[in-house]
Write a protein that binds this DNA or RNA. Structure first.
Lengths: 234, 234
DNA sequence: TCAAAAGTGTTCGAATTACACCCATGG
DNA sequence: CCATGGGTGTAATTCGAACACTTTTGA
């Protein structure tokens, strides 16, 4: 068999993004064990026998927040020998996109996770800050071409909400007429008869995703961001 | 410390691509140890204490081929509990892009790795076929936007060579006038005075990469492939 | 001299941008 | 009635796709 080979701890760490209508946020927890106990950290956990990586990530998320069936995507494996000072641990990172409103209270009550604006999040333990940077790059890169940001919104959402989201993710201003035209040309949206009156007197129509088209066209290239060439991607 | 947690074997597996002027090829080895001894396999190896993942991948490549400083990029971690029948092993895959001609003989003489056309490569062990499929998707995805395919060519190369490469990777025909125009508009190429006469009587001018611009513009979006929207990406 | 590949320009249509006004409503 | 954000159309430009002929030279 594979004698004489070293075995290592394997962890998954989740970068959980949410959107409050204005800004992208990240969900952090206070680390429960030494070292660095009570410092802010990504939510993570060790992979257990019998768990695949994807399952481990879903379990970590469920344990820390109570959420199930969340949109998760593997980002990268981090294997620096010294990244965990106690014992060498390989970490596989995932990003998670969740509808912040649906779970906001639940999270704060039952669990001790907390949302932070990306701009003023605290420093994290180990190499977690680097992981967050990579996750931010990855989400920008991917969302420039694929409609993943819908995962951050409720089932019913308005176009101004969506535009705010894109504007925050790319830190840019988007012309609303062009944005709407491109958006409707994708055929991904279904207009609902109701309006959201919370944002303005006139109210904005709700839309929902056309699930079938969403799944069928997920790999197709979008171009909702003007001149993505100027953005630094990677 | 982290007691009561299980440790696992960690491997890296490299999907090594080369280009013979006509077609993309993949470099495979005969597996040296049981189980599945002497079956075709990706080149891989266990991660050792003190080795980062990137280092482990470079070492695997160096051990199997003698190559150093190769273009390597992490693709994905595979963690299915049963993917290795002997003992659970996490595998982190990398793709490598190398100039096939520079190393062709060396590889065949000293090592027992062998180049295969992607179209008629043998079946591989474990989940290696799936890894290759993912690597192919990844390289197509990335090369549609970033100039990584240059890594497959010698320092001096001709535009027809480059076009063959793109045509093979995307299994499509590209109009040479449009291709040249887009290519020169990137400013990445420097024309050399010499010609390559091996491909035609007239001969084709050699070009080399403008390394500075290559590095500076690596993240910029290219669009050398007509209508990438129609390709399945992911 | 001719076969075979390299190299070069222009036209057309589609897609993207820039841009300004009316609409609906709650206060 | 008016302030606020939501929603709509058009013209100008840019970008990509389609397309055919001339050049070079070794055999």
């Amino acid at each position: 068999m594979y004698r004489d080979q070293t075995r290592f701890l394997i962890a998954v760490d989740c970068i959980v993004f949410g959107f409050d209508g204005e800004h992208l946020k990240i969900l952090l927890v206070k680390r429960a064990l030494e070292p660095e106990k009570d410092k802010w950290s990504l939510m993570g956990g060790f992979v257990k026998p019998g768990e695949s990586l994807d399952e481990a990530a879903q379990n970590v998320l469920n344990l820390n927040t109570g959420l199930k069936g969340v949109y998760l995507e593997q980002i990268q494996a981090y294997g620096d020998p010294l990244r965990d000072p106690i014992e060498r641990t390989l970490s596989v990172t995932y990003f998670a996109l969740i509808d912040i409103h649906k779970y906001e209270t639940q999270i704060n009550d039952e669990y001790h996770a907390e949302w932070f604006l990306l701009k003023d999040m605290p420093q994290l333990i180990f190499d977690h800050d680097e992981m967050v940077e990579t996750a931010k790059r990855k989400i920008r890169y991917k969302a420039a071409l694929h409609p993943i940001l819908f995962e951050l919104l409720p089932k019913k959402f308005t176009i101004p909400q969506l535009q705010n989201l894109y504007e925050d993710v790319y830190n840019t201003q988007i012309d609303n007429r062009n944005f709407i035209r491109k958006l409707t040309s994708t055929g991904l949206l279904i207009k609902l008869p109701e309006k959201d009156k919370s944002g303005s007197k006139k109210g904005a129509f709700y839309f929902k995703l056309d699930k079938k088209k969403y799944k069928a066209n997920f790999q197709a290239f979008l171009n909702l961001i003007p001149k993505p060439d100027k953005l630094v991607m990677g």
